[in-house]
Amino acid sequence: MVFTSKYCPYCRAFEKVVERLMGELNGTVEFEVVDVDEKRELAEKYEVLMLPTLVLADGDEVLGGFMGFADYKTAREAILEQISAFLKPDYKN
């Protein structure tokens, strides 16, 4: 999940990064963009303290994530590193 707000300029920029990642990681990672102003209870559940925040979860189990803006390369590397235990080893390239 990607927690954002329509009032956050970094969130708008990060959503473009997420769109690119959605195309590349389709089938491996599913992204849901969550506006914290509309789903405050979900943001509280995942203890979102900063925007944007990316939470990697498998069901209710949090696998990882990060807070703050990240460029495409940094975000991709962080996501793949954190979920590598759940991926086939040859996908990491």
Rank of each mutant, 00 (worst) to 15 (best):
72 Y>P: 01
47 E>R: 02
27 G>N: 01
40 R>P: 09
42 L>V: 12
45 K>Q: 03
14 F>G: 07
93 N>G: 09
47 E>W: 04
67 M>I: 11
35 D>A: 13
11 C>I: 09
58 D>K: 15
39 K>R: 15
40 R>Q: 11
26 N>H: 04
92 K>N: 05
28 T>R: 07
15 E>N: 08
47 E>L: 02
23 G>C: 07
65 G>T: 04
77 E>A: 12
46 Y>R: 00
54 L>R: 00
23 G>N: 10
61 E>R: 12
25 L>D: 08
91 Y>P: 01
66 F>Y: 09
73 K>F: 13
44 E>G: 00
48 V>M: 01
2 V>W: 09
91 Y>G: 01
76 R>M: 12
57 A>G: 08
81 E>L: 07
80 L>V: 11
13 A>S: 13
93 N>T: 10
2 V>D: 13
24 E>D: 14
8 C>P: 13
53 T>N: 01
61 E>D: 13
46 Y>Q: 02
65 G>W: 03
8 C>D: 13
74 T>S: 05
85 A>Q: 10
29 V>N: 07
12 R>F: 15
68 G>R: 03
44 E>R: 06
92 K>M: 14
69 F>Y: 15
29 V>P: 07
82 Q>C: 05
21 L>G: 11
56 L>E: 01
56 L>P: 04
44 E>V: 01
62 V>A: 00
